[in-house]
């Protein structure tokens, strides 16, 4: 995975490690996390058993605002949004319905949204956030780690804070303090937590 600055899978079982390297790269790619993860180190010891994934995310993508999705024109209080990015149309409608109610939001055709707004409402409209990628990033990251890790590893502990995440899972009860192990794996990437 050339887009990651660091990607290692470490295991006491060499054959298993090679398999998991391919598996992890497929899962990360399939979940669209290649642009998000900067470094990741996975450690699996099937004898203990324990699965540890530690990583660092890149500077997060900017939120998508109404002005990013379409051109906004205001004619005496009648605001018209001409959609040019249909991908986010469903989310945009949801946001507008929640903010202004369904009665106020007219959609005469697929790419046009018309609303009668006050001056204050029209002013805040372009900056309203439609989708914030950070909202789902944590869930996506942890979900992908759950898929990568062996299925029987149901006992887990995870954290994501300030661009650094860790995911530890096992079939048995985890040790009370897993942080030394997590720190050790962060150190292998040249990072601290």
């Amino acid at each position: 995975m050339s887009t990651l600055d660091y990607f290692e899978v470490e295991s006491t079982d060499k054959v298993g490690a090679d398999q998991y390297r391919r598996l992890a790269s497929v899962v990360i790619g399939d979940h669209g996390l290649l642009k998000v993860i900067q470094k990741i180190h996975i450690y699996i010891d099937p004898e203990v058993p324990v699965f540890v994934a530690v990583g660092i995310t890149r500077t997060l993508l900017a939120a998508i605002r109404v002005s990013d999705i379409g051109a906004i024109t205001n004619q005496d209080g009648q605001v018209i949004i001409s959609i040019n990015e249909e991908t986010y149309l469903a989310a945009l409608l949801q946001v507008l319905w929640n903010r202004f109610s369904k009665d106020m939001v007219q959609q005469p055709d697929r790419f046009t949204i018309m609303m009668d707004l006050t001056n204050e409402e029209a002013e805040i409209l372009p900056d309203m956030i439609v989708i914030d990628p950070t909202d789902t990033l944590y869930k996506d990251l942890i979900y992908s780690m759950q898929i990568i890790c062996p299925e029987g590893f149901k006992v887990r502990k995870q954290n994501f804070l300030a661009g650094k995440f860790y995911f530890v899972a096992s079939e048995d009860t985890l040790p009370e303090d897993i942080m030394p192990l997590v720190r050790e794996k962060f150190a292998l990437m040249g990072e601290t937590i």
Partner: peptide, 17 residues
């Protein structure tokens, strides 16, 4: 499983498992 002619077990990546 015993109703079949044979069973193909799809196991995992680690030999100890």
């Amino acid at each position: 499983i015993n109703e079949h002619d044979c069973a193909v077990y799809l196991l995992g990546n680690f030999e100890s498992c």
